[in-house]
């Protein structure tokens, strides 16, 4: 039976992706390293502060992993939560695992923790870059209910590779935030089709912001993770220049587009509306030559 990544919580995702019984948790729940800020505010605090970290293996390869729990405060990053992720990445700099896997599901900064949360997110970004600089690929997986938003959306894009499912969402300001700030005429957060063609997995794949899109099963994610690790991490000056050129072209090419569908049309899709209905294999095949990056 193939298990859904989307439906699983953080611990079930780790169990589903790593080799059986290979996971060793760092700062487990019983260590009770909880948020001091939530205690001050007299709010309930999760035993693991909403993120599970540790070490395990995939196909025998040594993997460091952090999995955010979207069910606890929308996966928001507090001081302890952020420090745990940073710890995984800094340990990777020292120990050189085959990869660091970040299973992100988050609305971004935990607003209750204000500046401590903001600093935590920026430290995560810096730590991702440190791990990559040390030669350890950092692979981000986004396929949960809450998506990956706010500062953690930026952090995700600092990684070596991003793997998404169609259900996954990646962005900076989340749909509700945009609607609140700019009005419902600008963006209707309850229009799910609009939300998905703005921040959903398929759109991110087409505009080259995620490197692989997979069906919602543990096996599919696992396979894509292996491929990303095998592909390694190229952030030579040449690769960065190329990325900048792509971004420049993107602004020129899509700058006047009003909707994801306009972008897809510009990418050469004759019938952009059909994209939403395609299953994953069909979509990936059809996307060849119709995304900003080559496959």
């Amino acid at each position: 039976m193939s298990r859904s990544y989307y439906e699983s919580n953080a611990r079930a995702r780790i169990a589903g992706l790593l080799d059986a019984n290979s996971f060793h948790e760092w700062l487990p729940a019983e260590a009770r390293v909880t948020s001091p800020h939530l205690a001050t505010l007299e709010q309930p605090a999760a035993f693991d502060d909403g993120v599970v970290i540790g070490q395990g293996s995939i196909a025998g390869k040594n993997i460091f992993i952090a999995a955010q729990e979207g069910g606890f405060m929308g996966g928001a990053v507090g001081e302890v939560h952020g420090a745990k992720i940073v710890g995984v990445l800094e340990r990777a700099v020292r120990d050189h695992p085959a990869a660091v896997l970040l299973l992100l599901e988050t609305g971004g900064v935990r607003l209750q923790e204000a500046n401590a949360g903001l600093i935590a997110v920026s430290e995560v970004m810096r730590a991702i870059l440190s791990a990559r600089a040390a030669g350890v690929p950092v692979v981000v997986v986004i396929g949960g209910q809450y998506g990956c938003f706010g500062g953690m959306g930026i952090a995700a894009r600092c990684a070596s590779a991003i793997i998404m499912s169609e259900e996954g969402r990646l962005g900076l300001s989340g749909p509700e935030v945009i609607e609140t700030a700019r009005g419902v005429e600008e963006y209707d957060a309850r229009d799910r089709a609009l939300v998905w063609r703005t921040v959903g997995g398929k759109h991110r794949y087409l505009i080259g912001e995620c490197d692989a899109i997979v069906p919602d099963s543990m096996e599919a994610f696992q396979q894509a993770i292996m491929t990303c690790i095998e592909n390694g991490d190229d952030w030579s000056l040449e690769a960065l220049k190329q990325e900048h050129q792509l971004l420049n072209e993107r602004v020129k090419r899509f700058g006047t587009c009003k909707d994801g569908r306009d972008i897809w049309r510009e990418l050469g899709w004759a019938d952009p509306i059909s994209i939403a209905m395609m299953d994953n294999d069909e979509f990936v095949k059809a996307a060849q030559g119709h995304r900003t990056k080559n496959n």
Binding site: R11, A29, E30, A46, F47, D48, G71, F72
Partner: peptide
């Protein structure tokens, strides 16, 4: 062996057994 189930989300709870 020490176990944790559930999530501290709205209408839900986490339970640890040690």
């Amino acid at each position: 062996v020490t176990t944790i189930v559930g999530v501290l989300g709205s209408g839900n709870l986490e339970v640890m057994v040690e």
